[in-house]
Amino acid sequence: MKNGKHTAIKVRKITKSFDQVKAVNGIDFDVYTGELFGFLGPNGAGKTTTINMLTGLARPDSGNIYVNDIDCIRNPKTVQHLIGIVPDDSNLYPELSGFQNLCFCASLYGIKKIEREVRARELLEIFDLVKAADRKFGGYSKGMKRKLTIAAGIIHHPSILFLDEPTTGIDVMSARQLRLIISELHKKGTTIFLTTHYIEEAERLCDRIAFIVSGKIIRIDSVPNLIQPIKSRHTLKIICAPGITKLKKAMEDNFPSMKIIIQEEGVLRIEASKPIPVGPLIRFLEDRHIDVFEALRIKPSLEEVFVDITGIKIDSMKNEKEKSGGTS
């Protein structure tokens, strides 16, 4: 119990190594009951390893994990009654239909036949999969597979739900629908532990977020608190013709109150504590025969905070994830 909030998940100093690589390096955090907690980090940060340890699919080398005050390391099977797990890979049975898959997953929790059939139909309705209920899971689209995997994860009404990269690799419409469903579950009081590499998704959905990089938690806070330090920061992004690298020093001399960052050839990022006058900057560049194509004001966002704290480029993180096929 902290500040009147009950702790659903308590993690203390857990570590996990694979061969010589420390996948998770002494992390601590609490997830409160009814909270939607985001676990944000690049590929290989330790997100899936952490979920595996929290759900009993991996054993930490050291540290403690408590789920609803139950020691998860000693009693993983007791904990598994309380939790629902949606892995990053849709691992249902391709030979079974959507309906059969849901009924089978319900049976693993000891739910009786009539109850599981009613629940399966209810979930197929909620997830808009009624028409595909009798089709084999193997023939589903990626978005449908994700939806059915989430439905299977909540078939037994778990009080805590682990979602590992729920929207990775699916179309925009399905991702939007899934986010709505996640929000609905959260509103109904389900504690949700969500790992993602989509910062906008974490920002939109989560109450609190932990940034994890190289197996270590760098920062945990609520979205407003994370954004607070950069709220007063003004940022401008200028897209222009190549040739700006050699002008950096001159720009810094001309605009001493601004921080000039060359993100890549042709992309300038300018930060200041006051509103940035665009005209003088554009004139400065054009006078030096650099064509300016675009000037964009960047709103303070979680993405900015993440880049500030971790130094990781968001685009590279996304690309890396998509290339890897969506596993962490």
Partner: peptide
């Protein structure tokens, strides 16, 4: 893994 994650 789904079976290993079930409370059996």
């Amino acid at each position: 893994d789904r079976l290993l994650l079930a409370p059996i």
